[in-house]
Simulated scan of single mutants.
Amino acid sequence: MLSRRTPGQSGFGSGDGQRGRVEEAALVTDEFLGHESHWPEGGVAERVERWLADLAETEEARRAALDGLWRLGPEDGEAVGPLGATLESGDGEARVFAARFLSLLGEGAGMAVPTLCRALDDADTDVREWSADALGRIGSRASVAIPRLEQMTQETDSWVRVLAQGALLKLDTRPQLIHALAGTKGSDDIALQCWGLSLVIDVADRYDEALPALLAYLGHHYDPHIEDIGRCLARKTEAIQPLVQALTTGEDWARRNAARVLGHQAAHTEVLIAALAEALSDPFPDVRWSAAGALSQLHSAGIDVRTATPALRGAAGDEESVDTRLTSQRLLDALVGPEGPSGPKASA
C-alpha cells in the first residue's frame, strides 16, 4: 500500500486552492495512525464512502477520515466506485480529494479512466490538475487521455501545465517533456519546482537534469518542501556524497536541510551516521536539532546508529537547545536503556 504522506510529501502545496486543501490532508498527525477504533467497519468501498462523508463533519472525524484515505494503495480497487462517484457529483472540495485519492490507487484506478478524462474539463482547476495526475499514474489504460493532456500542457496555469506534463511523462516518456519539467526550476513557485524536478527523477530517472537544481534548494531556509526533496533524493545513492558534503561544508540552512534529507536515506549509513554525529556539535542550533532528528529517523527505520552514541551523550548532556537535548536523550534511551544496547540491524 502506498505510504501515508506527511507534510511535504508529494502533496506539494504551499498556498491556495487544491494545494492548500491537499496539504491539509497531508497534515494528519500520528494521533489517528494505527487506531482501528477510528476505522469504519466493512470493506474498502464502505470505508471510503464513510471517510468521504466524514470530510464534512467535525475536525476529529475529518482528520481520521484523511488518515484513512491517505492509506489507499493500488490493491484498494474497490475504492474506485465511491471515489469516482464523488468526482462526478460531489461538491468542490470533495471532488478535489476524490481525484487526489484516485491517484493513490495507481493502476488500480483503471476503471475510473472515463470519469477522470471528463474531469480534465472540470470548471475547478484543482480537480483538473489531480485528475491529470491520476491518469498518469494509471498507466497505459489511460492512453486515451494523451490528446487532452497534450492540450493542457499549453495552458497558462503553471500547475495545470506541470501536472499534465507529468502525466504525459508517465504515459509516454519523451525528451521534450523531461526538458519542460526540468525547466520548472525557473519558476518562482518552489513547490512547483520541486514537483517538476522530482518527476524528472522518479519517472525519467534523469539525475543529470534535476540533481544540481534540487541540491541548490537546500539553501531555501525553512521551506516545508525540503522534505519533498529529501524523499526524492534519498532514493538515489548518487545524492549521498553531495548531501554529506552540504552537511559538512554548506551554509547554515544548507547544512540544516542536508541533515533533514539524510534522515530519509537507508544506504551507506556508516557515512551518514558519522556525518550526522559530527553535526550534533555544529554551531548552528537548527543543524544540531535536525541531525538528532535524522539519527532518530534512521533508528526508527531499523538502522543501527549506535556509533553515534558518544555524540548523543554529549548532546543530551550539554546541549543548550531543549528540543535537541530531548531528541538526543530519547534516542540514547532507545539505544542504551535499562536493558542495554539495542540496534535492529547493522549499518549497510
Rank of each mutant, 00 (worst) to 15 (best):
T125D: 12
T125W: 13
V127N: 04
V127C: 05
V127H: 04
D133A: 14
D133W: 13
D133K: 04
A134V: 04
A134Y: 06
L135T: 02
G136Q: 07
G139D: 05
R141E: 12
A142S: 00
S143G: 14
V144G: 05
V144S: 14
A145H: 00
A145C: 08
P147C: 02
R148I: 11
R148H: 15
Q151D: 11
Q151E: 06
M152S: 01
M152P: 09
T153P: 02
T153I: 07
T153Y: 01
Q154L: 09
Q154D: 12
T156A: 07
D157G: 11
W159G: 08
W159K: 12
W159A: 14
V160C: 08
V160Q: 10
R161M: 07
R161L: 08
R161G: 04
V162N: 03
L163M: 15
Q165Y: 02
A167K: 04
A167H: 01
L171D: 04
L171I: 09
L171A: 10
L171R: 02
D172F: 00
D172M: 12
P175M: 08
P175W: 01
Q176E: 14
L177Q: 12
L177G: 06
I178Q: 00
A180I: 02
L181F: 01
A182W: 03
A182Q: 07
G183S: 09
T184W: 01
K185D: 14
K185T: 13
G186F: 09
S187K: 07
D188H: 10
D188L: 06
D189G: 03
D189P: 06
D189H: 10
I190G: 15
C194G: 13
G196P: 03
L199Q: 15
L199M: 08
L199T: 07
V200L: 13
D202R: 01
D205K: 13
D205F: 13
R206S: 04
R206G: 07
Y207D: 02
D208A: 05
D208V: 00
D208T: 12
A210E: 13
A213M: 03
L214E: 04
L214S: 07
L215V: 12
L215A: 13
A216S: 15
A216H: 10
A216P: 14
A216R: 12
L218F: 01
G219H: 06
D223P: 01
P224T: 04
I226P: 00
E227I: 06
D228M: 09
I229R: 05
R231C: 01
C232L: 06
C232V: 09
A234Y: 10
A234C: 09
A234E: 10
R235G: 09
T237D: 08
T237R: 07
E238S: 10
E238M: 11
E238L: 03
A239I: 07
I240L: 15
I240N: 05
L243K: 02
V244N: 08
